Lab assay of single mutants.
Amino acid sequence: DIEITTNGEEDAKRVIKELQKRNLEYHIEVHGNQWVIKVR
């Protein structure tokens, strides 16, 4: 598993777009303004 910590929603959406392009499965956890994306 890979864990990507982003700085808020805009940053997270940019990362998610890339993950979707590669058809990767991911899970999002929001901790305040930090979005942690866990990639399987």
Rank of each mutant, 00 (worst) to 15 (best):
N23Q: 10
R14V: 09
L24V: 10
E10I: 08
I16L: 07
K17S: 11
K13H: 11
W35Y: 08
G8R: 11
N33P: 07
D1Q: 11
H27Y: 14
I4G: 01
H27M: 12
R22Y: 14
H31I: 14
T5H: 14
V15Q: 02
H31K: 12
R40Y: 14
Y26G: 02
E3R: 10
W35P: 01
I28D: 00
H31R: 15
Q20P: 01
E25R: 12
K17N: 09
Q34I: 15
K13Q: 13
V30P: 02
E18Q: 08
I4L: 06
L24F: 06
V39G: 01
L24Y: 07
Y26H: 03
R22A: 13
V30N: 06
I37Q: 00
W35A: 02
N23I: 02
N7H: 11
E29C: 03
E29K: 05
T6D: 01
W35G: 01
K13A: 12
N23D: 07
E29T: 11
V39C: 06
Q20G: 05
A12G: 04
I37R: 00
G32S: 04
H31V: 14
R14F: 11
I28M: 05
E25A: 12
A12Y: 07
T5I: 15
W35T: 04
I37H: 00
V39I: 13
N7V: 10
E10R: 09
E3T: 15
R22D: 06
N33C: 04
R40D: 06
K17R: 13
Q34G: 04
H31A: 06
V15H: 03
E10L: 09
T5K: 11
Q34F: 13
N7S: 10
E18C: 13
L19A: 02
H31P: 01
I37E: 00
E29H: 06
R14E: 09
I16P: 00
G32Q: 05
I28W: 04
H27F: 13
R40F: 15
I16H: 01
N7R: 10
E9G: 06
V30R: 11
E25T: 13
V39S: 02
E3A: 10
L24P: 01
V36K: 05
I2D: 04
E25D: 12
G8Q: 06
T6Y: 05
N7P: 04
K21T: 07
K13F: 12
N7Y: 15
T5A: 07
L19E: 00
K21N: 11
H27A: 10
I2T: 08
I16M: 08
E3N: 07
T5N: 06
Q34T: 14
E9T: 04
H31W: 09
K17W: 11
N23S: 06
I4H: 02
R22Q: 14
V15M: 06
R40I: 15
E3H: 11
